[in-house]
Design a protein around this nucleic acid. Structure first.
Ligand code: MN
Ligand code: MN
Ligand code: MN
Ligand code: MN
Lengths: 219, 219
DNA sequence: AAAGTAATTTAGAGGGATCTAAACTTAGGG
DNA sequence: CCCTAAGTTTAGATCCCTCTAAATTACTTT
């Protein structure tokens, strides 16, 4: 049985594991808001318990066992976020903090009942895919809005950034999951993206914003 | 901000505070499954933080502040139990352990939204009253089934004991909240109660069982 | 009222999670 | 190729919660 803290570390390592690079101590300390010293302690513990592969000074990666645990926590987090938005009428920028707490509730049965109650959703309010009970997750072929070619059309599928500030900004722009977007121009100077949303509103978003919006191109 | 453990101690003290007697260290250690030594430590801490009145060797009682906290935890516990039974189709004997975890989720907004989602219930699946957001709780005039006179009629309002074993036994007997009961006889030897449930089934329950069923007499 | 017993508190310790400061390792620039 | 800066680990400490064992206090019983 993992403690809440251990679950959080494993989840952080999971989220930091892009491509097959090893995850570094400092990167973990940053997302966990702890010191590298604390991370080192925890890595030793998680390694002893076989949740991670760990070689001193070389960074870590999740074992099969660790990845399974991580995916269960991610599953719970995202299902609770769906619950909060769909059933309790929270806005998508308000749910992450509460889900950070709810994701640690221990009850297999609870999460399966919740999944059914929500009609087995496949993605959360931010467009992130929800692993199934076995920890399988559909790999979605998505591209960043910042990478879409001029005149390219696409459907908004999700957001990489989940901060309330970012999500509220999208609300203001009228961009949400499912929105149809068309890139009408790209500013050479700063890579800002000019786009049309739902065939109506035309707007310009910074490269930074465009980099955090995941879209699925329509050919 | 209280830790989960502090919340649990305060809740335990609340539940042990019947009539105006002071709550004793050993009683707390028993319901918390800890040693009296651990309780003493915690009492000192809670007293320093003004959640309880504490005089060494004399037992404790909750301050206004402590009672307010306790009632909020109780409110959350019972609302989550309603959620689990009403929305996720749990049986009433399965919800307590999960609610023990959920009651510590910190979010005022969440609990108010949950309350609305559940249509502001006034009692939980075991018949226990749910404090409102201000911590007010209706005082229900209830009596134990064991105290009902022979030929007395009553409606089952709640259970004092919440263990799965007890609740499952009631399921088997066909006794649930709202059941109409009539005491047809009382065995002098061991105070067992003979009763008729919903004008149909006649059965005998032990004094011990009857002592744990709360009823509201019908005149 | 003193003794004996039960309840309670204190002392001392350990595990979990965190920190700061110091020591160590790695890797890149001169 | 070695030296230094950045990254990482270790050492030593604190806070929280828990324990066992010992000491203290309160209550009961004679
Ligand atoms: Mn989230
Ligand atoms: Mn999300
Ligand atoms: Mn309960
Ligand atoms: Mn209950």
């Amino acid at each position: 049985m993992l403690t809440n803290t251990e679950e959080n570390y494993i989840k952080a390592i999971y989220h930091l594991s892009v491509d097959n690079k090893t995850v570094r101590t400092n990167a973990i300390s940053e997302v966990m808001n702890t010191t590298p010293a604390s991370v080192s302690d925890m890595l030793k513990k998680l390694s002893d318990k076989s949740y991670i592969y760990y070689e001193k000074y070389q960074g870590v990666s999740l074992t099969k066992k660790g990845k399974t645990e991580a995916l269960q926590v991610v599953r719970k987090h995202r299902l609770w976020e769906v619950f909060l938005v769909e059933k309790l009428n929270f806005n998508w920028d308000e749910v992450h903090e509460i889900a950070e707490q709810l994701e640690h509730i221990q009850s297999k049965l609870l999460i399966e009942r919740l999944d059914d109650f929500l009609d087995n959703p496949t993605s959360d309010p931010h467009g992130d895919p929800i692993p199934n009970a076995k920890g399988e997750m559909p790999v979605l072929r998505q591209v960043l809005l910042s990478e879409l070619e001029v005149n390219g059309k696409a459907k908004v599928m999700g957001m990489k950034e989940h901060s309330p500030a970012f999500l509220q900004y999208l609300d203001k722009l009228g961009i949400s999951i499912g929105s149809a977007v068309k890139v009408t121009d790209r500013v050479v100077f700063d890579a800002s993206v000019e786009l049309k949303v739902n065939d109506k509103k035309t707007m310009v978003v910074s490269h930074e914003v465009a980099k955090n919006i995941l879209v699925s191109p329509i050919d």
